[in-house]
Design a protein around this nucleic acid. Structure first.
Lengths: 126, 126
DNA sequence: CGGGATCCCATAAGATACTG
DNA sequence: CAGTATCTTATGGGATCCCG
């Protein structure tokens, strides 16, 4: 399995790359997770998530909307009300994200233990 | 489920945050994926992944090692040989990553279609 | 061959203030 | 309440050179 030439790296066009580009930023997975139970308002997401700025939330929601993973519902009211909900496509992403979450719940401590055991930057050339 | 006060956002200490902090960067998931079949050398990873710089690879490997997810094996040879492999803990992360990959393989086209349908930045305030 | 050090640039992301 | 614009800083990440 090591006979790939310079012309064809394996993982270069791997679907993992797309998955990473989609959810591998600071907020995307958390926002999707926040929407997993049903429609949520902008302000509610801010409170739920805790620590995200309005700018980052809006930006994340926009990208998810453009990717077809969530749907925006703006009501013509005063004061304005906007709700976001997963599309059927977006809902299919909840399971994988849930698996990651479960993994973290089960193994998070082990990771923190490992960090605790090797606190130093591990310079192998030293 | 909307009665959380200012003192307790739901997702703030959610394990999803740890999961995100672990794998939500450009290379971590791909590197783990590259190690999922068995021990691989540094240079092999470079070829397999395609596009990663030596600096980023080393940096990613160091963090994974510190997190206890991979193990480094340096052989006292000339020229030097260094192999990396998943720890048992790291191996448990492969399944979740695999699910993401499978999702991308199944739904990647749908996402690209959505992007194609709404190419513009979607300015709702316009 | 593996990897550290340095320099440099592009982007991410927070704070703040303003608009409908 | 929801969203945008602008500014600023921290970080990510590439290129390059040098060392074991």
């Amino acid at each position: 399995m090591s006979g790939f030439g310079p012309g064809g790296p394996f993982l270069a066009d791997c679907p993992a790359r797309l998955a990473v580009e989609l959810i591998a930023d600071k907020w995307t997975a958390v926002v999707l997770y926040g929407l997993s139970e049903g429609p949520v308002r902008h302000g509610e997401l801010i409170e739920m998530i805790g620590g995200i700025s309005r700018k980052m939330l809006t930006q994340t929601l926009r990208r998810l909307e453009a990717h077809g993973l969530i749907r925006r519902h703006a009501y013509a009211e005063v004061p304005p009300r906007v709700e976001y909900e997963l599309t059927p496509l977006g809902a299919t992403l909840i399971d994988p994200i849930h698996m990651l979450t479960e993994w973290a719940r089960a193994n998070g401590d082990a990771v923190l233990d490992a960090l605790d055991a090797d606190p130093e930057p591990v310079a192998h050339g030293d």
